[in-house]
Simulated assay, not measured.
Amino acid sequence: MRIRYLLLNAYGTGGTIRTVFTQATTMAGLGHDVEIVSVIQHKDKPNFDLDERVKLSSIVDQRAPTGDEPAPGVVARYRAGRRERLRKLSARIIPAGEFAYDAFNRYVEQEVVRYIKSVSDGILVTTRPALNILAARYADSRLIRVAQEHMNLGTHRKDVQRAIARYYPSFDAVAVLTSRDREDYEKLLPGTRLVRIPNAVHSMEQERSDHTNKIALAAGRLAPQKGFDMLIPAYKKVAERHPDWQLRIFGTGKKKQELRALIEKHHLYNHVFLMGHTDHMDDELTKSAFYILSSRFEGLPMVVIEAMTHALPVVSFDCPTGPADVITDGKDGILVPPKDVDALAEAISKMMDDEELRHTMGAEALKTAQSYAPEHVHMMWEELFTDLVRTSGKDAAAAA
């Protein structure tokens, strides 16, 4: 089969990117012709390793000029001027409520549509609402089209939900991450083929934590969704009881200065550390004793499952959706009510108080992670693709 994955930015660091890279690698290993197409490219190499059998291309190159380019001719100057004018205009088709709306100016949107219209065979997998909507509207009818949803339906803003209701029925299949997601989407999209396929971890061969280092770890974009503005005040109460522990928060984002100011406000500069980006998250997880998820909402929190592959128990808000689909409260982690800062602080302290609890829950967390192993999850994808080629009535010969 020929399979193309369309990502917004294959050169970023998000969980969706890593998930798609892992999936593409497995599909290529099974003998399929696989390509990842990145809407934008801002650096030379992606952050995550990619199997050499998987092609990687981009639609809009946003890298800085090298200075070696020849002087542009009249036509090139005209095109450059038009391109700059379009870049100053907001996207026209994508709903303004899409979380990545700012990445889609008129020029980027136009180029994505141009690319989608150029694809006429195989399977096209799109990976977020903006790309799903564009594929639903403009992809060749001969294509087998699969939409991936990495966020729960209720998280999307109303204009995005309306667009989902209008355009997603044209897909051959819509894949969601959890059983609760599937129930929600079924209500909105009756008659649409909906499948629940969780994301896979990149490997189960991780070094395990021994739970003895006095380090709690959290990770994610420094953005409101991840709730670090709630975690830091919660940790003030924790630090009073456990001054010898550290909270390390990995990630980058627009809220860095605000979070730093919050750390200063609560006098946590010796206890809470904004670690920035790391290329060695597996090593950092191994060094930690447990993981904390403080998100306001999630799709399927892959970093939680990655932590579990290191035998780390998890303390988490029971936010919509995902944590409760992965964590069994009291068995492999502790779930507390969403946005309940006091309950989060108490659960963190409980985990710090009891090394034996961390050992026991960590062993169960490792068992939980097994159901997200690549060989298990990716077989579900191959079965879906094979069935779509067989049953869709589309250009099966080209797809296969």
Rank of each mutant, 00 (worst) to 15 (best):
I292R: 00
E375I: 05
Q161N: 09
T252C: 05
V174C: 09
V174L: 06
I215L: 12
D244S: 12
Y138K: 01
T386Y: 10
E346W: 07
A363R: 14
G154E: 13
H277E: 13
G330C: 07
T178W: 11
V37S: 00
W381L: 13
P224S: 07
A400S: 10
M361C: 09
D44M: 09
D325P: 03
M1L: 11
P65M: 00
A289P: 02
D283I: 09
G67L: 10
F48A: 08
K117I: 02
N213R: 11
I59Y: 02
V39W: 04
Y168P: 01
V201Y: 14
H211N: 01
G14Q: 02
G81L: 08
R92S: 14
I215K: 05
S120D: 14
A103T: 08
V39Q: 02
R83G: 05
R79I: 11
T360G: 01
A289C: 06
P338M: 12
R63K: 15
L285E: 09
L274W: 00
L357Q: 11
G299W: 01
D210Y: 07
S57T: 15
P95L: 09
G253T: 01
K214T: 10
Y291F: 13
Q161G: 07
V272K: 03
R390Q: 13
A136I: 09
G67H: 11
E111N: 05
G67N: 11
Y115P: 03
M27N: 07
S295C: 09
A400L: 15
A311D: 15
G333F: 00
D329V: 07
K367W: 03
G67P: 15
G299R: 01
Y115H: 11
H202Y: 10
G333L: 01
D61C: 12
Q225V: 12
T155S: 15
H277S: 10
N152Q: 05
D49L: 14
I334S: 01
E149F: 09
A399F: 08
A307E: 01
G31T: 10
E284G: 01
I232K: 10
E183P: 07
A165D: 01
M204K: 11
Q148G: 14
V389D: 06
E207Q: 15
Y107E: 15
D159S: 14
P70F: 02
V201A: 08
D49P: 12
Q206N: 13
G73C: 05
R128A: 05
P95E: 12
M379T: 14
A343M: 08
T22L: 03
V377D: 06
M380T: 11
Y138R: 04
S38Q: 00
P313K: 04
